[in-house]
């Protein structure tokens, strides 16, 4: 279980968040939605160790940790593929840097390439494939971290709508097939409704959880589920309300 307890972060006396709490149970898919600039990325920066928290604690699997550097895999909005490596070599980066057995790692990566619809593209260079394929490769690389916790920072927001929809089903595989614990930031409410077990709706700075939705509908879900449509309307209402009241 990932537990974020009473964390606080200031930037030059400006309170980004204070006493912020979050809990993601093992194997759960939790999603954070909030207005731009509310502090979501600062929270992820703190989780990944880019910045230090001023107060509060983080724990992963009941152990206190300074940050999640050695515990989480991370996938960002940009595919972050190195242009000088083939798709396969990009996917193998976590294994290369971690000093793993490369024969086994290659077998695992090829299996994932096959599973995520990238077979026969292993030796292609990133500039030879589409944005969707690059992001699939980034997803394989994320899985090659071989870590139980995955942080997703708007991983599909740079893609067109059609490609995004096809990749959302692959994100779901992270939970259903690969049994990962996932915390994702997104701006796409429908994406959150399709994937999340719990949605945290955040307020503008100082960032707090303004609404918390628990979604127990079975997955894969459909957009036209009346319960989901009701939650979507609630989320939009709340976001619009926050924007109106924003100073």
């Amino acid at each position: 279980m990932l537990q974020v307890s009473s964390v606080t972060k200031y930037f030059n006396d400006q309170k980004i968040f204070s006493g912020f709490n979050l809990k993601v149970d093992q194997g759960q898919f939790h999603v954070i939605i909030g207005p731009s600039g509310c502090g979501k990325t600062t929270l992820f920066d703190a989780l990944t160790g880019v910045i230090e928290l001023d107060e509060g604690t983080l724990s992963w699997k009941q152990k206190l940790v300074f940050n999640l550097t050695h515990h989480a895999a991370y996938m960002q909005q940009k595919d972050m593929l190195l242009p000088w490596f083939s798709l396969l070599d990009n996917a193998l980066l976590p294994s290369k840097t971690g000093g793993q057995n490369m024969v086994n790692a290659k077998k695992q990566a090829l299996k994932l390439f096959n599973r995520l619809g990238l077979s026969e593209y292993e030796s292609h260079m990133p500039n030879q494939v589409s944005g969707g394929m690059r992001q699939r490769c980034a997803l394989v690389r994320t899985l090659m971290f071989n870590r139980d916790l995955i942080l997703l920072d708007e991983p599909l927001s740079a893609l067109d709508t059609i490609t995004r929809r096809s990749l959302q089903s692959l994100l779901l595989l992270l939970q259903t097939e690969f049994k990962k614990t996932i915390l994702m930031i997104t701006h796409d409410i429908e994406e959150a409704l399709l994937l999340a077990d719990e949605i945290y709706l955040l307020s503008p700075q100082p960032m707090t959880i303004s609404r918390h939705f628990i979604l127990d509908q079975p997955k894969p879900r459909k957009f036209n589920d009346p319960v989901l449509l009701k939650i979507k309307a609630d989320v939009l209402d709340k976001l619009e309300g926050d924007l109106i009241h924003e100073p």
């Binding site: 990944t48 160790g49 880019v50 550097t69 050695h70 989480a72 895999a73 991370y74 960002q76 972050m80 190195l82 490596f85 980066l93 976590p94 290369k96 840097t97 971690g98 971290f145």
Partner: peptide
């Protein structure tokens, strides 16, 4: 990219080479 490599736990030498 530096963040990505740090999360991978890469040593300075690996980061330099890759």
């Amino acid at each position: 990219f530096k963040i990505l490599f740090r999360l991978m736990g890469a040593s300075f030498f690996k980061k330099l080479m890759l």
